[in-house]
Design a protein around this nucleic acid. Structure first.
Lengths: 147, 147
DNA sequence: TAATTGTTGACTAAAATAATCAACTTGATA
DNA sequence: TATCAAGTTGATTATTTTAGTCAACAATTA
């Protein structure tokens, strides 16, 4: 029941991008440095986000990436779905045909309920919420230096 | 974000055991057949449940396994924890020291919230709930034959 | 055209998963 | 007490997934 690095690093990369919104194109290299992810790997993490239209990219000198939609319109459920695929703990939750026991399987109901609970969390949060949360933490961190 | 077969088969095995409660010792072989899991694999799935005191076992002829606690006192969260380990989507949720970014990481808050939502589902359900749910399904299934 | 930046696909090492197999221990019973 | 029927444990293995790296390529700008 663990998230892979795609989901973890990918969401962090997207948050990084959202935090630098309005600064034009952001270099993948800079995101990689700030988020402590290797550049070649980050490229693979960003790819599905570009393909899905969440992020736009420009090659060449002065190229980079930036958000294509406002953070308030990007639900975390969408991001996790893109990076990790379905959040369902078991495949039969999405596709009952995968197992002939599905119709009469009580445990499947549990996994379905778990998926619902997880989706509720991720559906109710946007990238904007994450940005605000991060800014608060950043603020708190800065204040620490004065103690 | 997938459950492994340990969690899936293991919970099914325990439900099977609960459904046959009061029938004395149940053969692993029978559970394996009913749940369509290989016997050698099932043995490994049952082991942690025995070690944790949820299941008692008897070797030798007329041996077998049975529940040691009433199903109503076995929370699904406990079962999943035993079979799969922590349900936390990321290890840093349980142990912030694993990553030096923990204190200032907003995404970690998301994963913490997800863990809470998942735990709530599994904490609020017992094996008894699962038994009742299964009996209803079994009932519905039986009725089908008369149509 | 040279430098910079993102894109893509091939490849690989390491780890986790999902088992199987075999040797062993225990308990019941003939 | 010999034997058989269980469960127990540890070693081993094949497969899949994960987490990357590397290199060739494409596009853009100065």
């Amino acid at each position: 029941m663990k998230l892979s690095t795609k989901g973890r690093y990918g969401l962090r990369a997207l948050l990084d991008l959202a935090l630098h919104q309005g600064e034009g194109l952001i270099l993948l290299k800079d995101i990689a440095r700030r988020q402590e992810v290797s550049l070649p790997y980050l490229e693979h993490l960003i790819a599905p986000l570009i393909a899905a239209g969440l992020v736009k990219s420009a090659r060449g000198a002065h190229g980079g990436v930036s958000l294509l939609k406002p953070p308030s319109e990007i639900k975390l459920s969408e991001v996790v779905q893109l990076l990790e695929g379905s959040i369902a703990p078991v495949d039969c939750v999405n596709n009952p045909m995968l197992c002939h026991r599905s119709a009469s399987c009580a445990t499947r109901d549990i996994w379905t309920e778990m998926k619902r609970a997880m989706s509720q969390v991720l559906d109710s949060m946007t990238l904007q919420d994450l940005v605000e949360r991060q800014r608060q933490k950043g603020q708190a961190e800065t204040e620490m230096y004065y103690i």
